[in-house]
Amino acid sequence: MKINDVILRTVTKIVVFIILTFGVELFISGHNDPGGGFSGGLVLASALLLLYMTYDIETVHKGIPFDFKKIAGLGVFLAVASSAVPMLFNNQFLNQAKGDFALPVFGVTELSMVLLFEAGVALTVVGVVVTILLTISEDVS
């Protein structure tokens, strides 16, 4: 039996971008407002899950040809490596440096090392959640 899911597919195409944008927004705004690496990563992962559910794994894989295990590994690497960077400048491990930078377009912006750390958290969450769900779904199908 073929399920008629035109509406789902059409809606997904649009909604996924909204969710992805929302995820990035959550990730960036986490510094001062609700959000952050963990919830941002979870939202990104849920957008991907929606894609996988609406289309099938192979189709999505053509569009997003990432190995999510490696993304999770990259996330951990990023978090640990960015934690170790301060040690090179005679600071303690995990000392999160920050500073204000005058950037084009954005104006004077505060940038912090914690951004890299949180990026690592977000990537790990995305990688692990998608890996687990893909593995289980490949197993049952």
Binding site: H31, D33, P34, G35, E110, S112
Partner: peptide
Amino acid sequence: LTGGGNIVN
């Protein structure tokens, strides 16, 4: 202390 306004983070 951290420069972040969100206490949780």
